[in-house]
Each structure stands twice: as structure tokens, then as C-alpha cells.
């Protein structure tokens, strides 16, 4: 693997007394789609803003293209396309002004591509940004983020609050972006369906920490929901080792396990229990199991 496109080491961030990021380390390889998952307020936006140089690291370090985005905004931001969560654009501009304004900042801007995107998104060049619907605004923001064919596309909750048609546009843009060799997409989301569709790797952020960071095709095969019957009733099931989440009481427990099947069998026989069923899990369930309840202890992180 060549040099990672983003390297975050032990990043900590507090806003006032509230700890938002508590030692986040994340390496995002060049090429492919990286999905950053987390509930509301988990710190996804904060991580993304650090990579854009909008927040300076309080401790730890952030490198994008091997550079510090705060110290060198021209050489980092010039290669990044960004669509923010609120899709804020200057209200007073018209679409064609927004395009020519944005074009000026990027030497690689492709006017033909911009024009074809504008046609595809059905954006009227004379329309004011303030008069756009939410979906059209997202498309305008996407156009501005894509038209310079950035090496890194950063999307913060790109499809929250949008209708399925606009969501398709956004997913399509992500797919087209990485279909060109070597380009990278980093996006945050809590819509797990689209994460599962487009992400190569995902990281789950919870309570300011990375709970999990794995390739997409591993996460589904490594998580299972196991229903087991214990020989003696317990009031609390020990969530440690391969067990990451449990529900139930007494003898019967439904537990989420991470690991190979034979690990699960060894562990179950150690507990002197029998396995009733083993079911595969979808990303939704894994996400809930990983982030539900209290913050998980450090040992559980992979």
C-alpha cells in the first residue's frame, strides 16, 4: 500500500468541558471509499473538520496528503472537494456565479464536467441559491465539490434529510469518483444502507473513540448473533473477549459475537452453554450492538 491519504494520530478535542474526540487514531488509505459511522453527536463532523483544517488539533496530529491542513491550506484544500452537513452556500449568489466563483480557486476545474453535472442535476444557471430546494442545494454543493475532480472527496452526512432521488445522485457521484483510479472518498453517515453499498472500509466512532475500523467485507462475516442457553442462570452476561453485546436474562441470552465460528464454539463450551442458533447480522444490527448503551471499554476495541 502506498502512502495513506489521511493519517490521524491520537487526536483529542474538547469544546469547553465536553470531550468530543478522545484519542482518535485513523489511517485512511488512498483510493476507495471510507465510511465514518457514528450516532448523532459522536464526533464525525469534528473528525472531518480536522481533516479540512477547520479545526486545529488540540493534541495529536492530522496529516492529509502528508501535509498539515492547518499550516498548508492551499496545497491540501486545493485537492479536496467538500460538501458540508448543512450544505451552506452563499445565499445571494446565482448558480452561474457560484460556479464561476468556485472555478477560480481550482486550476484543475473541468468546465465541461461542471456543465454536464449542471445539466444532469437540472440546475438553472440564473436561479439564486436562496431559492433552491434542499435537494437542489445539495446538488449545487455537490457540483462545486466535484467539478475540479478532487483527489479526496469529503462528504459530511451527504444524504441526511434528502429524498431518494437526490440520494441516488450523491451515491452515484461517490461511485463515479472512485471509479477513476486513485481517488478517495471519505464520508460520514448514519444511513447504514448506503454505507454498506458504497464503502470499502468503515470506522465506527462512538463516544469520541474509534470502536471499530475494518474493511467492509470483513465486518459482516465477522459478526454473528448467537442465541445460547446457559446451564446455570446468571443476572449479567460477561461482555468481554469476543462478546460485544448481550440481551436476555437467566438461562437464555442473545449475544453478538465477533470472531470466527470456532472461537465462538470454544468460548461457548468454556461457559458450559449450548448454542441454539447462529444468525448473520446486517450492518444496522452490528452498528447498534457496537454503539448501544454505555461506552465500551478499551479491551473491546479491535
Amino acid at each position: 500500500m502506498n502512502q495513506p491519504i489521511i493519517e490521524i494520530r491520537d487526536l483529542k478535542r474538547c469544546f469547553g468541558k465536553k470531550v468530543v474526540l478522545d484519542g482518535v487514531s485513523l489511517t485512511i488509505p488512498t483510493g476507495g471509499v471510507f465510511g465514518l459511522l457514528g450516532g448523532n453527536g459522536a464526533g464525525k463532523t469534528t473528525v472531518l473538520r480536522h481533516t479540512l483544517g477547520l479545526l486545529a488539533a488540540q493534541s495529536g496530529s492530522v496529516r492529509v496528503f502528508g501535509l498539515d491542513p492547518v499550516a498548508d491550506p492551499v496545497r491540501t484544500l486545493g485537492r479536496i472537494g467538500y460538501l458540508s452537513e448543512n450544505r451552506e452556500l452563499p445565499e445571494w449568489m446565482r448558480i452561474h456565479q457560484l460556479i464561476s466563483y468556485s472555478q477560480a480557486f481550482y486550476p484543475n476545474w473541468d468546465p465541461d464536467y461542471a456543465e454536464s453535472l449542471r445539466n444532469m442535476f437540472e440546475l438553472d444557471p440564473k436561479a439564486y441559491v436562496r431559492a433552491l430546494s434542499r435537494g437542489q442545494r445539495a446538488r449545487a454543493g455537490l457540483l462545486v465539490a466535484l467539478a475540479h475532480r478532487p483527489d479526496l472527496l469529503v462528504l459530511d452526512e451527504p444524504s441526511s434529510g434528502l429524498d431518494p432521488v437526490v440520494r441516488r445522485d450523491i451515491l452515484g457521484a461517490i461511485i463515479r469518483t472512485i471509479a477513476d483510479e486513485g481517488r478517495t472518498v471519505l464520508f460520514s453517515s448514519h444511513l447504514l444502507d448506503e454505507v454498506e453499498r458504497v464503502a470499502d472500509r468503515i470506522a465506527i466512532l462512538h463516544h469520541g473513540r474509534i470502536q471499530l475500523c475494518v474493511p467492509m467485507d470483513q465486518i459482516l462475516s465477522s459478526h454473528r448473533r448467537v442465541r445460547i442457553r446457559l446451564s446455570s442462570a446468571v443476572s449479567r452476561f460477561p461482555t468481554e473477549g469476543i462478546w460485544i453485546h448481550c440481551e436476555g436474562s437467566g438461562h437464555d441470552w442473545s449475544v453478538v459475537a465477533e470472531g470466527e465460528m470456532h472461537d465462538i464454539q470454544t468460548e461457548v463450551s468454556r461457559l458450559q452453554a449450548e448454542i441454539l442458533t447462529v444468525e448473520p447480522m446486517n450492518l444496522d444490527d452490528i452498528f447498534v450492538a457496537r454503539t448501544a448503551g454505555k461506552p465500551l471499554t478499551a479491551e473491546v476495541r479491535s
Binding site: R49, L52, G53, L54, P73, V74, R75, T76, L77, G78, I80, Y82, S84, N86, E88, L89, P90, E91, F105, Y106
Partner: peptide, 20 residues
């Protein structure tokens, strides 16, 4: 700002590749 959300610089402007 580009909108009234907060007093801080808006990400739209903040992510323009322009030296401070």
C-alpha cells in the same frame, strides 16, 4: 459566515484553497 448558524467562519469559505 454565509449563514446565521454561528459566529465562526463558515466551512464553505474555510475550505477555499486560499492562503490565510
Amino acid at each position: 459566515r454565509t449563514s446565521d448558524s454561528s459566529f465562526a467562519m463558515s466551512p464553505f469559505l474555510g475550505t477555499k484553497p486560499l492562503a490565510t
